[in-house]
Simulated scan of single mutants.
Amino acid sequence: MREAFGTTFDVPPGYLNTAAIGVPATATAAAVGDAVARWGRGGIGPGDFDEAVEAGRRGFARLIGVDAARVAVGSTASQLVGAVAAGLPAGSRVLVLRGEFTSVSFPFAAQADRGVRVAEAGAAEFADRAPDHDLVAISAVQSADGWRVDLDALRAARAGGTRVLLDVSQVAGWAPLELDWADYVVGVGYKWLLAPRGAAWLSVHPDAPPPRPDAANWFAAHDPSAMYGLPLRLAGGPAGLDLSPVWFAQVGAGAALDWLTGLDLAEVAAHCTGLADRFRGALGMAPAGSAIVAVDRPDAAERLTRAGVRCSVRAGAVRLSFHLYNTEEDVDLAVRALGG
Rank of each mutant, 00 (worst) to 15 (best):
R2E: 03
G6R: 11
T8M: 07
Y15F: 15
N17P: 00
I21E: 13
A25C: 04
T26W: 02
A35D: 04
G45K: 12
E54M: 08
R57W: 12
R57C: 06
R58I: 10
L63T: 00
V66R: 09
V71Q: 01
G74K: 03
G74A: 01
A77H: 12
V81Y: 12
V84K: 00
R93M: 02
L95Y: 13
L95E: 14
V96M: 07
L97Q: 12
E100P: 11
E100M: 09
S103C: 14
S105V: 10
A109G: 00
V116P: 05
A119I: 00
E125S: 15
A127Q: 08
L135Q: 06
V136F: 13
S139C: 13
S139G: 12
V141K: 00
Q142D: 10
S143A: 14
W147Y: 15
V149W: 13
A157L: 09
R158G: 08
A159S: 05
D167G: 02
D180V: 01
V186P: 07
V188Y: 05
Y190P: 02
K191G: 08
A199Q: 09
W201F: 15
L202P: 01
L202A: 08
P206C: 05
P206Y: 11
D207A: 15
R212D: 14
F219K: 07
A220D: 00
D223I: 01
G229D: 14
L230P: 14
P231C: 04
R233H: 12
L234S: 03
G236F: 04
G236V: 05
D242T: 05
V246K: 13
F248K: 03
A256G: 03
A256I: 00
L260F: 09
T261E: 13
G262L: 15
E267Q: 15
T273Q: 02
G274S: 07
A276V: 02
G281V: 08
A282Y: 06
A288N: 02
G289P: 06
D296M: 10
R297S: 06
D299S: 14
L304T: 01
E328Y: 04
E329N: 05
V331C: 06
G339W: 13
G340P: 13
